[in-house]
Design a protein around this nucleic acid. Structure first.
Lengths: 340, 340
DNA sequence: TAGACAAATGACAGCGCTGTCAATTGTTAA
DNA sequence: TTAACAATTGACAGCGCTGTCATTTGTCTA
């Protein structure tokens, strides 16, 4: 059957407590002893029993990923990244889907954390952007790592992994400018999402950098949905707006961009000849539209793995902890953007 | 702090063993006693400690979902459904992404099952369609429930939840026939996937039922990808094939259909006026194409929850077990199919 | 070389629960 | 009413590990 700590102790000729010390990387073990134990561990292919550890110890070896995000590809990428870090570090992952808009979301998650003895949480937008929610969790003396949009952490509540949407948005807007566009519209995602705000800032900054006058009428409020893209693009390209039509549209994500594409088709506007449309996120379906979308790509699994590793080192109370890291999404040029 | 079995026992005035009997639904507890215990459980909001149960007992309260499927929406739906069943039944879910084509996939999963003391597994295609893999798992004395394509279980290895793609494919083909189409092409998914085979059978059956001659040249082999849809549609609609062009295309899934749509656009074929295209699966992006796809919808989360419940009742060795249930995807008519 | 101290190691209880088996109840037939 | 039996309940060990604290070992100084 499976080897236990007793088997290892016997094999190495030490007490189980010493084995425990070795597998927990504690000090006060002579190098020679440590080696003997490690060899025994290897020979027996010993893996500590998580249930026993959780039961006996005060520490916990479980972290949770809480998600509320309609984008399945995003979640799966995140989950896979987290899972890979957990596996390497001998942690268990508890998955908890939820509804951020639910009234008792805090109570629900607090309950889960208590009951499952969770040591740490990984939060992605929109949950990571709800300060009160985060504060309630922190009171439980559970570690938190947030993945957020921006170039630096908004506060000191927890370590953060930042996705620099601003710089990426500037780059992608610059791409349009380089193609000769001057009337560039902006189709916003949900206004309360940090990512919308950041992407908007990047858009503005690119315009400014190229001395292009900002035209407020080219900014359309909306949400992260296909339908929002459809109606936004219709508004921009309608006949009522004949004199003010943009030659390019920056969509806050690929879904909005797909909606804009759809609207363009309805209005017989050819892409990219008459209108350039760019997205953001590089979801798989940005390759499955016609034409394929120019967009910004972020390595979600890498980001998630990074976040999980930071979380685990927090849980382990290791020294020299990272409290921030940053990723900048990369421009991916495809067929939906072209010369003005 | 959290209530333990001791607290409940004290509160109810019985021994912990009796509490254990009640929470495990064992017989040999007097109704009155049971009631007392249940009340104490409710008052203290007691939830059994999974680690302790796993450690002490011979039973396990963990099931695993193993997935290898490029379709993130499918996985998330499945996962959410399984999770909801697990939560209700007090089981823990272990998530295990993997690569079905990897050589040592069996060894990897066997290891996982042993180490995490998994009581049951839920398998979705393509893993559920690998008999040798399933057999190896069964040898571990772990319960398995497979979600598969077809109208009845292919064998007695395990309980199955069947998705009747055949009937659904017949319905969707019939829909095209009802619109007046007689030359209906078939863009296949991966040939080794049961779903491709089943959908093909349904397609054939619909033709036969309406006395439409089957034309082999209208069947294009391929795989479940956008690109496969592009090349398949190009082949069908090319000038070389001028005399044999179909008026409608049945695509084995939405991704293929999106590819076909893309190809049609490249060739200046208007949808659905000159060509009808239907998909299968009702993925979110089937609503985000232009025009929106007619497709077949299956309630993946319900299917998954059903499968998880069957699995758990197997694990619990309950009587009157379901060994098969069946779902038939429903036709969803949108804009990509029209009169011939 | 012994004594003093720190470093290394081990003995043991106990985490919350289940399995085993013994003790206690209740029920039935004679 | 009581023996005989079944149904119900409980006592206790132990799952694999960690935390606490005692013991042993090694090292350094005088």
């Amino acid at each position: 059957m499976k080897a236990t700590i007793n088997d290892v102790a016997k094999q190495a000729g030490v007490s189980i407590k010493t084995v425990s010390r070795v597998i927990n990387n504690e000090t006060s073990v002579r190098p020679l002893t440590r080696e003997k134990v490690q060899q025994a561990v290897a020979e027996l292919n010993y893996q500590p029993n998580l249930s026993a550890r959780n039961l006996a110890g005060t520490k916990s070896f479980s972290v949770a990923y809480i998600y509320d995000n309609p984008n399945a590809y995003y979640i799966i990428d995140m989950q896979n990244g987290i899972l890979s870090a957990c596996k390497q570090q001998g942690f268990e992952l508890v998955i908890h889907p939820c509804d951020a808009k639910s009234e008792n979301i805090t109570k629900e998650v607090v309950n889960m954390v208590k009951h499952a003895r969770i040591a740490g949480l990984i939060l992605t937008p929109p949950l990571s952007e709800m300060p009160d929610f985060v504060k309630s969790l922190l009171e439980l003396d559970v570690k938190v790592v947030r993945i957020m949009s921006g170039d630096e952490a908004p506060d000191e509540l927890s370590p953060c992994v930042m996705v620099n949407d601003r710089d990426a948005a500037q780059t992608i807007t610059q791409h349009l400018i380089d193609l000769g566009h001057k009337n560039i519209a902006f189709l916003a995602g949900d206004a309360e999402h940090m990512s919308t705000i950041e992407r908007y800032k990047g858009y503005r900054r690119a315009l400014k950098a190229s001395n292009i006058a900002f035209d407020k009428s080219l900014v359309i409020e909306g949400e992260y949905s296909f339908d929002s893209g459809v109606s936004g693009a219709k508004k921009l390209m309608s006949n009522d707006n004949k004199n003010n039509r943009p030659s390019a549209i920056f969509s806050c994500n690929d879904e909005i961009a797909a909606g804009a594409l759809f609207a363009a088709r309805l209005m017989d506007i050819s892409i990219p000849e008459q209108l350039s449309i760019v997205g953001f996120e590089n979801s798989p379906f940005s390759r499955q539209t016609w034409p394929k979308l120019t967009t910004a790509d972020q390595p979600n699994d890498v980001i998630a793995e990074d976040a999980a590793n930071i979380l685990i080192s927090q849980v382990r109370k290791q020294k020299n902890q990272t409290t921030m890291s940053q990723y900048v999404p990369k421009l991916v040029v495809r067929d939906s953007s072209g010369q003005c």
